[in-house]
Amino acid sequence: MTGYLTALAAIVTREALRFIHQRERFVAALVRPLVWLLVFAAGFRAALGLSIIPPYQTYITYETYIVPGLCGMILLFNGMQSSLSLIYDREMGSMKLLLTSPFPRWWLLMCKLVGATAISVLQVYAFLAIAAAFGITMPMLGYLTVLPALVVAGIMLGALGLLLSSFIKQLENFAGVMNFVIFPMFFMSSALYPLWKMAESSELLHDICAVNPFTHAVELIRFALYVDFNGAALGWTVLAAVVFTAAALWGYSPEGSGIRRKG
């Protein structure tokens, strides 16, 4: 077991070192949600009226409403960023080094997933700290209770990134992921507007949003930030994480196709 943990520590450390070497990535990861929070939300506040919906007990500002969605946005973009890193590793050959280790392949990929999630969660906390500095705060205990929700959501979105990386043939094709995965997942969710608002304009869109795993990840985070628990959101997020992880592990198995993209 010690050997397994040694491999885990090394892979997580390497992910962290890579992140430290890419400071621009950290800045970009923070600037993106902050622009939404401080510019988009300010403009949108007047246009969008929000009624009291769980977990909120009182009327809230729009800036407060979108904080959980922006936490999800950081996790979503990081999940896709880790997918990009995996494709880069495959093109550069370093993925071969990882996959020829004697440890089981599922363990090696899970280590990658844990490393990517840890970095994502740290970025979410940095974002929450900056949001608090601008006066958008959550209950103090919420900053603690949100941690497991962020981990579960981060693993689910990281697993999606892992899955996508096993199917994307080349780095150049990553733009398609932006158009067909990130944007639809983000906009067709409860990140920017509650689902009942969506239902007012289109029942079909509402139904699509309701099955989007990102919606459930955002709701899991939203409830946890207010020291509340949303069992259905947890169930859907875990289910999506299991499905994405299983498909990604198959994609990277010797029988699958993940590494074969670049022989």
Binding site: A7, A10, I11, R14, H21, T100
Partner: peptide, 30 residues
């Protein structure tokens, strides 16, 4: 088995020791 691939698989941003330490960990050595 030890393998040297045709394409370099070193992490260019890491030192020689860090590259070797990473590989050692992938074989459970610490």
């Amino acid at each position: 088995m030890g393998t040297v691939f045709q394409q370099t698989t070193l992490d260019l941003d890491l030192t020689v020791r860090q590259n070797l330490s990473y590989f050692a960990a992938l074989h459970g050595l610490s």
